[in-house]
Amino acid sequence: MLRENKVIELENITWKREEREILNHISWSVAKGEHWAVLGLNGSGKTSLLKIITGYQWPTKGKVSVLGQLFGKTNIPELRKSIGWVGSSLEEKFHTRPSDSVLEVVLSGKNASIGLYDEISQEDVKKAEELLTQFRIDHLADQTYFSLSQGEKRKMMIARALMPSPKLLILDEPCNGLDLYSKEELLSTIEKMSYLPEGPTLLYVTHHIEELVPSITHALLIANGRTVAAGPKKDVLTEDVLSQTFHLPISLNWEDDRPWIRVKSRN
């Protein structure tokens, strides 16, 4: 039975590729008002999980419901219009359009197109300009995509993802490749966005624990395609759970409601 307050419901999800089990009996529930981190090493199954949630990959077993829609009984392409996804693979698609301006890239998010092909209204332009202001890159509106720094590109792509007012926003390792200053700038922007009253539910995917800003309320930890722990972040982000997830002895400290870790000496 679908529950209206649930953004994501996965029931006993298993996915195999060439007889190899990539995801193993994962059950997970995300409610409205929650913002989740998805944590795990590279190859742990994070990307496969995202592809299942967005309908680009079908589980071998189990049930999937996203935004109240049960997969197998809903129009997946239509559902994707309510889901924003920001990741390096999307950025790469704009490499073929070097002359597109920042404003044009953000506007293209309305119809999830790479480039502008549909009619754009003045209301659309106004919303795009407001998003650029929100992300403090309005002064870059007329500059081309390739003229931006990596941090500016990430802000632009998140603004683009917000154009159609998605109900679910997936940030797939958004700080990857950023220097310390750019990373903290982007995290500050994400933190402010998380508190918007009409903002989307966030899934923040990373293997860097220190990126979990205070507005991230919950965490799902995956190792070898299995759930290690899932729940409120202060309950599940413990030294034991993190050590199990990252296969190393971990020491954990909380500072300003953000978790910071180091590897314990093995001597």
Rank of each mutant, 00 (worst) to 15 (best):
R3E: 15
E4W: 05
N5V: 07
V7H: 05
V7E: 03
I8M: 04
I8W: 02
N12H: 08
N12D: 11
W15M: 10
K16R: 13
E19D: 15
E19Y: 11
I22W: 11
N24V: 06
H25K: 14
W28C: 13
S29E: 15
S29C: 15
K32V: 11
G33I: 02
G33Q: 07
H35C: 05
W36A: 02
W36T: 04
A37P: 03
G40F: 02
G45W: 01
G45A: 09
K46D: 03
I53S: 05
T54Y: 07
G55C: 01
Y56A: 10
K61P: 09
G62H: 02
K63T: 14
S65Y: 06
S65L: 11
L67C: 00
G68K: 00
F71E: 06
K73S: 15
T74R: 00
E78Y: 10
L79W: 06
I83W: 01
G84S: 06
W85R: 08
V86H: 06
E91D: 09
S99K: 15
D100N: 12
S101R: 15
V105T: 08
L107P: 11
K110D: 09
K110I: 13
K110H: 10
N111T: 11
N111C: 09
S113Q: 14
S113M: 12
D118I: 03
Q122L: 08
K127D: 05
K127L: 11
K127E: 12
K127R: 14
A128N: 06
L131I: 05
L132R: 06
T133W: 10
H139F: 12
A141I: 02
D142W: 13
D142K: 15
Q143N: 09
T144Y: 13
Y145E: 00
S147Y: 06
L148Y: 04
Q150V: 13
R154P: 09
M157W: 05
R160N: 04
A161L: 00
A161H: 01
M163R: 06
P164L: 07
S165W: 08
S165V: 11
L169E: 07
P174K: 10
G177E: 03
G177I: 01
L186T: 04
S188H: 14
S188Q: 15
K192I: 12
E198F: 11
G199S: 00
L202S: 03
L203H: 12
Y204L: 04
V205S: 07
V213E: 01
T217A: 06
H218E: 02
A219L: 04
A219M: 00
A219T: 02
L221C: 14
G225K: 02
T227I: 13
V228G: 01
A229F: 07
K234C: 08
D235W: 09
L237H: 03
L237D: 03
E239K: 01
D240I: 13
S243M: 11
Q244V: 05
Q244T: 12
T245H: 11
T245V: 09
F246V: 04
I250E: 05
I250N: 06
S251M: 12
L252M: 00
D256S: 14
D256R: 13
D257I: 10
D257T: 09
R258F: 00
P259K: 08
V263C: 02
